[in-house]
Design a protein around this nucleic acid. Structure first.
Lengths: 143, 143
DNA sequence: ATTTGTGCAAATCGTTTGCATCTGA
DNA sequence: TCAGATGCAAACGATTTGCACAAAT
């Protein structure tokens, strides 16, 4: 009935990231990091925050997502060009994209192996390898 | 001096795709498919067309890119969320993304092997696997 | 003649920004 | 106190759309 466990940890985590633990940031952090790994857009998170009774402006949601990203708490994923997705799981892993819903799902386990990666061009280094497995309903007529 | 070679082929290809071979579509197709494989945005292609002396509106470039995509002549690649890239190489291959320039480069050869792909969730099938290798300048301070 | 495509400008969508006000340290 | 954070609304950039006109079949 008093699930006020992670509040202190979150505040501390924000402070360590150089961010003041404001009401809004704590609320968003709690939604993002309170449970399982998640994939959210700014708008989804905004709606959720409001539904949870937290007054936060959409602009602040955007700002906060980018600050969390800069702090290494989130990773941004580009999948469809129209929306920006943020992933609370910052470790190395890959995704299913359910194309007709625009929904991202972590690929369970870390079984994916990539072999035969070529040398990057002179003067560059690999910062990250993104693998997105696009899914469509089995019966879908259109690809 | 009379490089009117591929015109007929292009017109025929468009017709086969159910698209009338209009002046604009022929011009854009010629830019896209006239030489090597390319990665373009709508704006890049528009500028190119104008530079080549072809009057085409930006709206038509957008329309045409999507029609070509629907016809299977192009593939769309989502890499940075801000622009849509279209790839004239529709075969299975992967990309380097030069992050600081927003430039895409085909990964030469087809050496990349992906192992351990999990089963897609019930009711879905894999439509495509995207692999994007993100590159940053070797000396870059920020990731 | 009928259908389809084009161009312009206005509209839309996700996102960012300027700036006045508030808040946490 | 006062740097940093928030919220609103306006600004933005890429893309889409409505509609009158033009071109292709």
């Amino acid at each position: 009935m008093h699930p006020d466990r992670p509040k202190l940890d979150l505040a501390e985590a924000l402070r360590r990231a150089g961010l003041r633990p404001t009401r809004q940031r704590l609320a968003l952090a709690s939604l993002l990091f309170g449970g399982e790994d998640r994939h959210v857009t700014a708008e989804m998170l905004h709606v959720e925050a409001l539904a949870a009774g937290q007054r936060v402006s959409l602009a602040t949601v955007y700002n906060t997502l980018h600050q969390f990203k800069r702090a290494g708490l989130l990773r941004e994923i580009a999948v469809d060009g129209t929306k920006a997705y943020f992933d609370t799981n910052t470790s190395n892993h890959n995704h299913f994209l359910i194309e007709n819903e625009g929904r991202l799902v972590d690929i369970p386990g870390n079984g994916i192996m990539i072999d035969g990666l070529p040398e990057p061009p002179e003067g560059y280094r690999i910062s990250h390898v993104d693998v997105v497995v696009r899914l469509v309903p089995q019966t879908a007529a259109r690809k």
